[in-house]
Design a protein around this nucleic acid. Structure first.
Lengths: 108, 108
DNA sequence: TATATTTGCAACCATCAAGTTGCATATTTC
DNA sequence: GAAATATGCAACTTGATGGTTGCAAATATA
């Protein structure tokens, strides 16, 4: 499951990190100030997000700035879109069934 | 985390179950035939999905038919939509910044 | 009524995940 | 160069998770 975007987004802290970083790129230290957990714990979350490429990094001196990578978020979006299609296809099939039933009864 | 929709969707088997059930309502036994794991394992996944109301059930004799509940999927969709808004707001801020910079240089 | 089928629940096990602490490395500052 | 700062990595602990097996309850069938 390593690098799985669904797994990455499952954790509420990581979702909060994504929201923060999507608004503004941040360093691990700056991020950690927003949470009650230790810096290392936040760093681990960052690693998970970076492993599945939801975050990219840019080293500036001793600081590392993390940026949100919208491209990877598309994978997620894509699944949901496909899923909706499945669901809507089912509705369409039901619609078609109802239409057929109607036309059948018309023929009677 | 009990009943958390993100947690529920994180597991690939559960996503597969959702896709199957979104296409057609099914019983646990029928579902289990689609997977390599035991019936009880599938049943546990069903429980997780039902706990967060992604599935609803309808008992017919000794069988239980599980249905997909699209209403709950909206929560998921909603988060992604809000997230996109965050992201786009940032872009808008950048746009505004660029516009301001341009008008500044126009004034020089 | 006896048997088979469908299902859920509980106990148990192995693995994973999130958190902590400690430490090493690189860079900035004094 | 020494101290402070920013970060990552490794070891360890604890709790959650996914899997299995066994069993009980409800319903259908012989």
């Amino acid at each position: 499951m390593k690098g799985d975007i669904f797994q990455a987004i499952a954790d509420p802290t990581r979702r909060a990190i994504l929201v923060l970083i999507a608004t503004q790129s941040m360093t691990p230290n700056a991020l950690a100030e927003h949470f009650d957990t230790s810096r290392q714990a936040v760093s681990k979350h960052i690693k998970v997000l970076a492993d599945c490429e939801l975050l990219t990094q840019n080293k500036v001196g001793r600081e590392i700035h993390y940026y949100f990578n919208p491209a990877k978020m598309k994978e997620f979006d894509h699944w949901l879109t496909q899923f909706k299609k499945h669901w809507e296809d089912r509705f369409n099939q039901l619609d078609q069934l109802l239409i057929n039933l109607n036309s059948d009864s018309d023929e009677n």
